[in-house]
Amino acid sequence: MSEPRLVIFDVDGTLVDSQEMIVAAFSYAYNGLDLPVPPRGQLLSYVGRSLELIFPELSPELDSTTHLTLTQAYRDAYVHLRQERGSNATSPMFDGARAALDVLKAQDWTVLAVATGKSKRGLDKLIEGYGLEGYFMSQQVADFHPSKPHPSMVQACLAETGVDAARTVMIGDTTFDIDMGRAAGVKTIGVSWGYHPVETLQADTIIHNFDALMGAIDDLIGPHE
């Protein structure tokens, strides 16, 4: 019997399309202080980073107190939008994502995990909204780790599940995800439908739809034997 394998997913831009909600929350935060909202593309380029680091990088001309105010306003807006509209409306799953998770969960030789820039509260609400309780053996969030691309989240997944790095793959849509996986010594799969241009992803392989995911995982970390 082969060793178990670990499949780690990023969330925003990989499993769910939350860009409208993210941009809306950014807009709410900046508008609340009568500040100009940065361009949409610039906002989305930061998806995956820890929120505390985003505003100082987006608006370095502002002071630290204003950065903290923007951070809290973003969080408040995100929570309000999710409560008002629900996960299916604010963070719809990409085509094929749920089916892929179901297939992988049914494999007793595959362990699932997530490594996300979301807060624990945000991830918990998303899992509840989609009925994904019990899918992910390890759930690593921004509250307890340095921001991506630091390898801490992936390292925690490895430690928590006991799966070897050689049998692990990180799946994400941003350079932060891919660099994090590489820094932790695991294989990486980049997805082309997310928030960073696909040509910037230096992943071991790139997929363009979820139909290609199973073959990519098998190729990189081995199938069940």
Rank of each mutant, 00 (worst) to 15 (best):
L68V: 10
L68A: 13
T69E: 12
T69R: 15
T69H: 11
L70G: 01
L70I: 02
L70P: 01
T71L: 13
Q72K: 14
Q72C: 06
Q72A: 11
Q72P: 05
Y74S: 01
Y74R: 02
Y74N: 04
Y74V: 02
R75L: 14
R75M: 11
D76M: 07
D76W: 06
D76R: 12
D76H: 10
D76Y: 07
A77R: 14
A77N: 05
A77Y: 05
Y78R: 04
Y78V: 03
Y78D: 09
Y78I: 04
Y78T: 07
Y78S: 12
V79A: 15
H80L: 10
L81Q: 10
L81E: 09
L81Y: 12
L81C: 03
R82F: 09
R82H: 14
R82M: 12
Q83V: 06
Q83T: 09
Q83W: 07
E84T: 12
R85H: 15
R85V: 05
G86K: 04
G86N: 03
S87R: 07
S87F: 07
S87K: 05
N88L: 15
N88S: 14
A89H: 10
A89W: 07
A89N: 10
T90C: 11
T90F: 01
S91R: 07
M93N: 04
M93S: 05
M93Y: 03
F94S: 02
F94M: 04
F94I: 05
D95Y: 08
D95M: 08
D95V: 09
D95W: 06
A97N: 02
R98Q: 14
R98V: 09
R98G: 06
R98M: 14
A99L: 10
A99F: 06
A99T: 10
A99P: 02
A100R: 00
A100P: 00
A100I: 03
L101T: 00
D102A: 11
D102L: 07
D102T: 08
V103S: 11
K105M: 08
K105V: 05
K105I: 03
K105P: 00
A106E: 08
Q107H: 13
Q107L: 12
D108G: 03
D108F: 07
D108A: 08
W109T: 12
T110D: 01
T110M: 06
V111K: 08
V111C: 04
L112R: 00
